[in-house]
Amino acid sequence: MNIFLQLVANGLMLGGLFAIISIGLTLIFGIVKVVNFAHGEFLMAGMYLTWIITVGLGLHPYVTVLAVAPFLFVLGAMTQRFLIQPLLLARDDHVQIFATVGLSTALINLALLIFGADIANTPASGLRAPVQIGPVRILEGQVYIFIAAVLLVIGLQLFLSRTQTGRAIRAVAQNRAAAQLMGINVDRIYVLSFGIGAACVGLAASLVAPLYPVSSTIGTYFVLTAFVVVVLGGLGSIVGAFVGAMIIGLIDSMAGFYIGSDLREAVVFGVFLVILILKPSGLFGTRVSLSHIS
């Protein structure tokens, strides 16, 4: 029984980790309708920045979010403005996808050039300390990630439903042309949304860095799962990403123990496929039009 509870706890913590990384991805996808393959590399950039500030200035890793999130916001906004936006006019939407693939490879190699192939370690600042809750043991840092993911979901929902800008963002997401006719500056909303999505990754980076050493390829470790989570939850659905992350985390943890470490990915992706077959738009998804013309 204790092992089962520990597996559930591990699964939820893993889910929190996947959730915090996936939320920005689903946000960008839902609004800008661009599948951002450089998402993992945004995370990597944020983690390196966290590492630099933490080691250089001796600050607590969580404090660095004040610099990392704005930095990622700018990086995201610039990606939209200077890379995606010129390509929005391309006849084929796939052009943007390959642009982000290119950006991903460029960022990995840039990091390799600057930081080398070795891992860089953000000081854990006590966040790796295990906490005993009843029969289960989890890490302090994992708990904070989980809480942050919940707060981020609530915060973004409030922002999108209660503020003028949020409503404008949703309007653009629903129908770009109609939103433009209503006087919304669509290009600006796209830049803003991409920036916000990237800033969410910045938050994730500062929280994840003390638990995982960063290397140039760290993004690739997370990004495939992030895509699975986002598709499972329903493209563009923030709550869906959270629930999807929890499901994937729990399956991963259970399958790793009861079925075997070599088969756990087979189980995760098997369940993923079954859910998609039963509910093609994902758990919380509505049919979205991928076209920018809409």
């Binding site: 893993l14 690739t220 470790y221 259970m254 123990f257 470490s261």
Partner: peptide
Amino acid sequence: PAATVDMSSMVLDLQSRGVDVVLQTSYQN
């Protein structure tokens, strides 16, 4: 898979089997 981000269930498995000596062949992460 080398690009794994969580080995906690594997650790639990080893622990519950009472493994005395762990042999790991791995990369850095």
